Simulated scan of single mutants.
Amino acid sequence: MQYQGKVYRPWMEANSLLIQATLGCSTNHCTFCTMFDDKRFKIRDLDDIFRDIEQARRVNPRVESIFLIDGNVMAIRTEILLKIINKVTATFPELTHLALYSGFNDFRRKSIADLKAIKDAGVTTAYSGLESGDPQVLKQVDKRMTREQAIEGMAMAKEAGIKVLASFIFGLGGRDRSVEHAINTTSLLNIMQPDAIAPMVLAVQPGSQLEQQVNRGEFILPTQLQVLQEEKYLLENLEDFDCYYWGDHGNNVSPMRGEWPAVRQPFLQRINQHIEHNNAANQNIIQSFAW
Rank of each mutant, 00 (worst) to 15 (best):
R177F: 06
A166D: 03
D37W: 05
T125M: 12
R108F: 00
T27Y: 12
A14R: 15
I275F: 05
I69E: 10
E94A: 07
Q229H: 09
I43H: 02
M192Y: 14
E236K: 15
V179M: 04
W260R: 13
Q209T: 03
L238K: 06
V123T: 13
I118N: 11
F67I: 10
P93R: 07
Q20P: 10
G207D: 07
G133W: 07
A117R: 13
V179I: 15
F170I: 02
M1G: 02
R109Q: 15
P222F: 00
R44L: 11
W246G: 00
M156P: 05
R177D: 08
N237A: 12
I285C: 11
A262K: 15
R264P: 08
Q287P: 02
A21N: 10
L228S: 01
T124K: 08
L202Q: 12
F219T: 06
M12N: 00
R51F: 01
L81E: 02
N282M: 01
F241E: 14
E94M: 03
F50W: 04
I66W: 08
S132H: 06
Q283P: 03
I220C: 11
L46I: 08
V88C: 13
E231M: 15
Y101L: 06
F289N: 10
I183F: 01
A290I: 05
P255K: 10
Q136W: 13
V137Q: 05
L100I: 04
K163Y: 02
Q229V: 06
E218H: 03
F36V: 00
R44A: 09
P199L: 00
A113S: 12
L225I: 09
L238P: 05
Q205S: 11
Q20G: 10
K83G: 01
S208N: 09
D45H: 12
L95E: 06
G173D: 05
V214Y: 15
E211W: 11
R58T: 11
Y127Q: 01
M74N: 00
L115E: 10
K83F: 02
E148V: 11
V204L: 04
K158A: 03
F168Q: 04
E276L: 14
A280W: 09
G122S: 00
E211L: 14
T96K: 15
R44W: 13
D134N: 11
K143A: 07
S288C: 09
I151G: 03
I286E: 04
Q283L: 00
T31I: 10
F32G: 11
E64Q: 06
I112C: 01
Q2I: 08
T146W: 00
G207M: 07
K232Y: 12
P93W: 12
R9L: 07
G161K: 09
A56C: 05
N284G: 13
V227I: 04
M200E: 05
T146F: 01
I49Q: 04
Q136D: 12
V123K: 13
V141T: 14
Q265I: 06
I84H: 04
D106Y: 15
G133K: 13
P222Q: 00
L202P: 09
W11S: 14
D48T: 07
